[in-house]
């Protein structure tokens, strides 16, 4: 029972020490927090940018529709209902040959008169199929093609393949850049936290001298590192949010036909991820710095 109480008292001591040392070290803590927030800002900014461009490429891909041309004599409504059951299909709209004919005539009226050229409506019934995302287009198209009563389909296969290539490239390049930045952030953190470990070497020495275990000595630094990371994220957050708003606006201007959603959940998720990265990098940075110090002492 006493050992449990002793443990909790040590936890209390560690927490107290971590918070007190941040304020006690004043400007040094400020330097570490600021360095971390700048690193996290760059990391988060690039991360979010690659994420948004990837989202945009998918959004463009998501605009792709599968035009399904119905064979003459087949029931377009029945086919449409069948397609709607396919996984990944969001909506299907039937455009009858008459509607299409009227529409075409209306569109082209100024240019030429169809009435003199053709007596008969040459167009087939059409079903416009929308799917969940660009990944769904090809599999859904393949299934539609096999349906009885489908004359032909058209879905901008080449454009889609290009977009998917671009999206995959952005995702891979983004992951590599974010990975590199993560390593850089860790390196910067280790080196700045090492300064605080240096200024506290006497504290470490005395802790060792009075019989604190090495494991116990790590904890205040570990928590301090996590606090540095959390505070760093907190500082960089408002800047990141405005950066995201700016990027989304610019992208929307560039691609006005694609609805880009500046969804707040995306921002919240980004900040939550960044907080995790900040706290993790801070903890790891502290651990590495203290371990180095203890093994060199």
């Amino acid at each position: 029972m006493e050992s449990v109480r002793r443990f909790w008292r040590q936890v209390g001591f560690v927490l107290e020490e971590a918070v007190a040392s941040i304020s006690r070290q004043g400007w040094m803590s400020g330097v570490v927090i600021l360095t971390m927030s700048v690193s996290l800002l760059i990391l988060g900014g690039i991360w979010q940018l690659s994420d948004d461009i990837y989202g945009l490429s998918r959004a463009i891909g998501g605009k792709v529709e599968i035009m399904t041309f119905v064979r003459e004599g087949s029931d377009a409504a029945r086919l449409s209902a069948a397609i709607r059951q396919f996984p990944g299909v969001t909506t299907t709209v039937v455009i009858t040959r008459d509607e299409a004919w009227t529409q075409l005539q209306r569109d082209m009226r100024s240019e030429l008169s169809f009435e003199n050229l053709l007596d008969d409506n040459p167009l087939p019934d059409t079903i416009r199929v929308k799917v969940d995302g660009p990944d769904q287009v090809t599999p859904v198209a393949d299934r539609i093609r096999q349906l009885d009563g489908v004359e032909d389909i058209n879905y901008g296969r080449d454009l889609l393949a290009k977009l998917q290539q671009i999206a995959a490239f952005i995702q891979a390049a983004g992951a590599i850049i974010v990975g590199c930045l993560l390593v850089a952030t860790l390196a910067v953190t280790v080196n700045t936290i090492r300064l605080t470990v240096q200024t506290r070497r006497r504290e470490i020495e005395i802790m060792q001298l009075v019989g604190a275990s090495n494991g116990f000595i790590h904890w205040p630094f570990l928590l301090e590192g996590m606090l540095f990371g959390a505070l760093g994220t907190l500082i960089s957050s408002p800047l990141l949010v405005s950066w995201r708003t700016f990027v989304i606006q610019r992208l929307q201007e560039l691609f006005p036909f694609v609805p880009i959603e500046a969804d707040s959940m995306g921002t919240v998720r980004l900040l939550a991820n960044l907080l995790l990265v900040g706290v993790g990098v801070g903890a790891l940075g502290s651990l590495v710095s203290v371990k180095r110090h203890l093994s060199s002492g």
């Binding site: 002793r6 040590q10 005395i206 802790m207 009075v210 019989g211 604190a212």
Partner: peptide, 8 residues
């Protein structure tokens, strides 16, 4: 400090 470290 010497006592707190030991969880006294």
């Amino acid at each position: 400090f010497a006592l707190k470290v030991l969880g006294t």
